[in-house]
Simulated scan of single mutants.
Amino acid sequence: MAPEAALTEEAAVAGGAADEGVQAETGVLAAAQAGDDDAFQELVGPYRRELQVHCYRMLGSIQDAEDLTQETLLAAWRGLAGFEGRASVRTWLYRIATNRCLNELRAGARRSRDLTEMRKQEAILPEPSRRRAEPTWLEPYPDALLDEVPDRAPGPEARYETRESVSLAFLIAIQQLPPNQRAVLVLRDALGFRAAEVSEILGITTVAVNSALRRARAGLEENEGLQRPDRENAPLPGSLQERRIVDGFTHAFETGDVDALVALLTEDALLTMPPLPLEYQGQAAIGDFLASVALREGRSYALRATRANGQPAFGAYARDWDSPVLHPHGVVVLTLAGDRIAGVTRFLDNVLMTSFGLPESLRAA
Rank of each mutant, 00 (worst) to 15 (best):
A305Q: 15
G248Y: 05
A208C: 01
E139M: 00
G16C: 02
A305D: 11
A313L: 10
A284T: 11
A183N: 06
Y280A: 07
S165P: 00
A32T: 12
S129V: 07
G45S: 05
V44S: 07
Y317N: 10
R182A: 07
W137H: 15
R106L: 13
H327K: 13
R188A: 13
T206H: 05
T250L: 00
Q70G: 07
A144R: 13
V207A: 11
G357S: 07
A11G: 01
N350W: 01
T266P: 06
E9R: 10
S61C: 05
S112R: 15
V149R: 06
R214K: 14
L115S: 09
L362R: 08
L295Q: 03
A260H: 06
D247K: 09
A212D: 13
V262R: 03
T162M: 14
L43C: 09
E164D: 14
Q181I: 04
S88T: 15
L348M: 11
A284I: 08
N180M: 15
W92N: 05
R296P: 00
Q70F: 03
G21T: 02
R57F: 01
P46N: 05
R217K: 14
R243N: 12
D147P: 00
A285V: 04
I172G: 04
R217S: 11
R113N: 09
R299C: 02
R48K: 10
R131D: 08
A263G: 14
E224M: 08
A153K: 13
G16L: 10
M118G: 09
L93F: 09
L236A: 14
P46V: 07
G315K: 04
A32M: 11
E117F: 11
W137P: 06
A30N: 13
R299T: 11
M58G: 07
R340Q: 14
P135C: 04
L290Q: 01
G35S: 07
Y280D: 07
D339R: 12
V351K: 12
T206D: 13
L187E: 03
S61T: 00
R110N: 13
E222T: 11
P178A: 15
A133C: 02
E157S: 11
R363H: 03
D147V: 07
A81H: 10
G225L: 12
V325H: 04
E42G: 06
F170M: 12
P154N: 01
